[in-house]
């Protein structure tokens, strides 16, 4: 078994070997490590991407808009880097569409890390595969295959509002149970247990 450290180092060097800058290679190395730790086939996908990249041109996006179309496939690394770098400007958009993305699984770790730096959950739909990124702590997904995904036609990103996943009523119900750990204070206790005097405005 290869360790995650070996995976990161090999991918970093390979990315540099493919002509990306060292700083970008560092990012891709970390990303593939992250994918593998999440149980997604990062190594397999980057390996295949680099094989294809030697014979095929990918579109390198610069500025990301709410709708991004390209006749040729977008490069997932450039897309990911720019999504991460521009996320402070993009996070207020309701929805971002990316049509025609090459090797979309390689885009995933950039989105996960973006979720952490902007402090918002991000929902990503890659054709019919759904991913919910939770501040780079966990990924919820309906996709568990270990396959290579060479392209996706329709990709949708949504920045989720920082709302709780429960109602105020549910909060009150549970909070009431938590009150069972509290002690009802008598007048005597009110005076003696807090430490400070009752007159605290003098």
């Amino acid at each position: 078994m290869r360790s995650f450290s070996e995976i990161e180092t090999a991918v970093k060097r390979a990315t540099r070997g493919m002509g990306f800058s060292w700083g970008v290679a560092e990012e891709v190395g970390k990303n593939i490590r992250l994918l593998e730790m999440f149980g997604l086939p990062g190594f397999k996908n980057i390996n295949q991407y680099f094989k294809v990249l030697t014979n095929q041109e990918f579109e390198k996006i610069s500025t990301i808009s709410t709708i991004n179309n390209s006749k040729s496939l977008y490069c997932p690394i450039t897309m990911g880097l720019n999504f991460f770098d521009q996320s402070i400007h993009l996070k207020d958009a309701d929805n971002i569409q990316i049509n025609n993305l090459g090797f979309p699984l390689l885009f995933i770790p950039f989105v996960s890390r973006t979720s952490e730096i902007i402090g918002k959950r991000i929902f990503l739909k890659i054709d019919n595969k759904e991913f919910l990124f939770n501040f780079n702590q966990a990924v919820y997904s309906n996709y568990l295959s270990g396959d290579i995904v060479e392209k996706s036609e329709k990709n949708e990103l949504k920045f989720m509002e920082n709302n709780n996943l429960f109602s105020e009523e549910e909060w009150s119900e549970l909070y009431k149970l938590s009150e069972d750990t509290f002690v009802e204070e008598t007048d005597e206790l009110k005076q003696s247990a807090a430490g400070a005097g009752l007159i605290d405005n003098d």
């Binding site: 800058s21 060292w22 700083g23 970008v24 560092e26 990012e27 610069s62 500025t63 880097l81 720019n82 770098d85 521009q86």
Partner: peptide, 9 residues
């Protein structure tokens, strides 16, 4: 960095 990714490191 959009224009200068060569300095990212």
């Amino acid at each position: 960095l959009m224009k200068h990714n060569e300095f990212r490191h």
